[in-house]
Amino acid sequence: METQTKILVLCGGKFAFPTLQLLAYEKFICGIGIGKASESIIDALEREAEDSNIGFKTFQDKKSISGMREWIDGIQPDYIFCISFPFLLPEKVLAYGEQKFINFHPAPLPQYRGSMPIFEVLKNQETETAICAHFMNSAFDEGNIIFNDPVTIEAGDTYGKLTVKLSNRMAQVAFNMANMLAFASSIPNQPQDELLAYYYEKPGLSDTYINWNRMTTEEIIALINACNPWNGGADASLHGEQVKIIMASLLDEPHDNQPGTIVSVNNRICIACRDDQQLAVEIISTDYGIMTAVQYSILHPEKTGVLN
């Protein structure tokens, strides 16, 4: 009887839950390591690990990584899968075994390196993303690629919708990878093309802020979707008040206003954009709370104004 392949999973939170559930059901998982997650997520995983007699350890900061190699040596997995694990693994850990560490990156590589590629593909108005399986080295997202598994981005996908879609797809991709490792003597892979490579830093305020004078309506909508819900919406200024626009659509009606001018406020907040179209804002977040355009119009009965 063949021995089941043992896989240890390093993860960063609930994004990996469907993968953990499927791999555990199929008897692949021998250990779970989690980094920098909430107490509720850590407690839930720890209870599941105890009930299933699976090794478990938390790595809440970079300093705690110093004990990872000894923990891995004690469990003796055949392979280590990483899914949104927040810390770079040092050479001491990677020396556990050549081509033993496989990362599952939620975007195509090498074009979308970085910690938040889901935000970037939506902001860039991509119609397709991917889950990239690649061997790990001592640099973020730079190891040899095993495959890029394509995932379609649907019109209207937000950061939240695409994250759930990728999380569910990740489970099947990781399961397929586990089966490949169980039956293949070697896994084909290739170096990343550095001419196509781009590393995105974690988004800051300048990345999430709407620039009415420079951005088209479609670019603004893409940014809003990319910020929902992780940033609570795209940042903007409305009547001198800092707000976050959570949901909006394109209103194909011409105007003769400067970009950023409020054309009307009724069941939607209609804002003039630079491409002679309007942004129809439906839900925003203000200091008063999250509200619809109708609720906002009650607080601000004026019909026009300028966004700064």
Results as ranks from 00 to 15, higher is better:
Val164Phe: 07
Leu205Ala: 06
Asp256Ile: 04
Ser40Leu: 11
Leu94Trp: 06
Phe104Thr: 12
Ala49Lys: 00
Glu91Thr: 11
Ala182Val: 07
Asp149Tyr: 10
Asp287Cys: 01
Tyr159Thr: 08
Val151Trp: 00
Glu126Gln: 06
Glu98Val: 13
Gln242Lys: 15
Glu46Gly: 03
Ala272Asp: 06
Asp276Ile: 08
Lys27Thr: 07
Gln277Asp: 03
Ala293Gly: 02
Leu181Ala: 05
Asn225Arg: 13
Cys30Arg: 07
Gly55Leu: 09
Ile245Gln: 08
Glu46Ala: 09
Gln76His: 03
Asp78Val: 13
Ala248Tyr: 02
Gly67Phe: 09
Val243Gly: 04
His239Lys: 03
Gly114Met: 00
Asn144Pro: 02
Phe81Met: 03
Pro254Tyr: 02
Met215Leu: 07
Gln4Pro: 06
Trp71Tyr: 07
Glu70Phe: 01
Ala44Ser: 15
Val263Ala: 01
Glu128Gly: 13
Phe15Trp: 14
Ile262Thr: 08
Ile83Asn: 03
Met247Leu: 14
Thr19Asn: 03
Glu154Lys: 15
Ile262Phe: 00
Ile118Gly: 02
Phe59Cys: 06
Ala293Arg: 01
Phe119Ala: 00
Ser185Gln: 14
Cys82Ser: 15
Arg169Met: 06
Val265Trp: 04
Phe104Ile: 11
Pro259Arg: 00
Asp252Trp: 04
Gln76Phe: 04
Asp256Ser: 11
Met215Arg: 02
Asp78Trp: 09
Thr292Met: 09
Lys57Arg: 03
Trp230Asp: 10
Gly240Pro: 09
Gly156Val: 05
Tyr25Gln: 12
Gly35Trp: 06
Ser206Trp: 09
Val93His: 01
Lys303Asp: 10
Gln172Glu: 13
Gly97Lys: 15
Gln111Asn: 06
Glu218Arg: 14
Ile284Cys: 05
Phe28Asn: 05
Lys14His: 09
Tyr288Asn: 14
Asn266Cys: 10
Lys165Ile: 14
Ala155Gly: 13
Glu219Asn: 10
Phe140Glu: 07
Glu241Phe: 04
Lys92Pro: 12
Trp71Asn: 00
Tyr200His: 12
Leu195Thr: 15
Cys82Ala: 15
Gly160Leu: 12
Leu238His: 01
Thr58Gln: 04
Ile271Ala: 02
Trp230Ser: 09
Asn148Thr: 10
Thr286Pro: 00
Ile29Ser: 01
Met180Arg: 14
His134Lys: 02
Leu196Lys: 05
Gly74His: 13
Ile187Phe: 08
Ala272His: 00
Asp157Arg: 09
Phe183Lys: 14
